[in-house]
Write a protein that binds this DNA or RNA. Sequence first.
DNA 1: TACAAGGTACTGCCCCGGGA
DNA 2: TCCCGGGGCAGTACCTTGTA
Length: 203
Amino acid sequence: MDKLRYMISDAAGLVNVEAHVLRYWEEELQLNIPRNEMGHRYYTKENIQQFLKIKELKEQGYQLKAIKMVIHNGKNPEEAAALTNANAALAERSVPNQPTAVKQTVSYTSAEEKMAQFRILMSGIVKEALADNNQDLSKEIGENVGDRVLKEMNYLMREQDEQEEERFRKLDAAIRELNVKKLKSGAKKKEPHRLFAKKEVTT
DNA sequence: TACAAGGTACTGCCCCGGGA
DNA sequence: TCCCGGGGCAGTACCTTGTA
């Protein structure tokens, strides 16, 4: 199968964002973008597709954290967003939910010792609370997000796949058109430097 | 209610290196 | 010399949250 390689500026043009946004997304989403022998990033059609998907999710209002989970864990966006929110909520919920252990009385001799004891105590409490909350939240998220979201997601994913396919048909046509133009202009004058960056390799 | 602080998602700028 | 790409860091805009 033929694989086109795009430089960052080309990829940015196709995704319709600035080059540094692609670099920013790569860093924030921990994407594995391959480098050429010069250390320059090159993007394949799959990478472009991935970035278009990221852009679409961003336009739908998802945070990069949620998108990252979608990419790396294969979670659907709603579930990822729910988990992201749940993790934030966890920090708030775990402290007031103090177990009985906090009620025990301890005698202290100094402020430092008090603080040390308090840290140890709190560490245990937080661990316990986190474990409880993780169970509760998993159950809660599972119940709330589960059925309805799965059905909606199945539908949305199908719709999204169709949209993506359509978009890539258009993208492909645009790329072909661009290549034809370049070939035509290349026949008249020497091809500019940038076009050499787009290597066509066979895999 | 106003203000400060913090987080998120870019954005701008700088400087360096490679290729034509 | 110019263009393009690299990394890094500070700045910005907007939003949310906390506090007096």
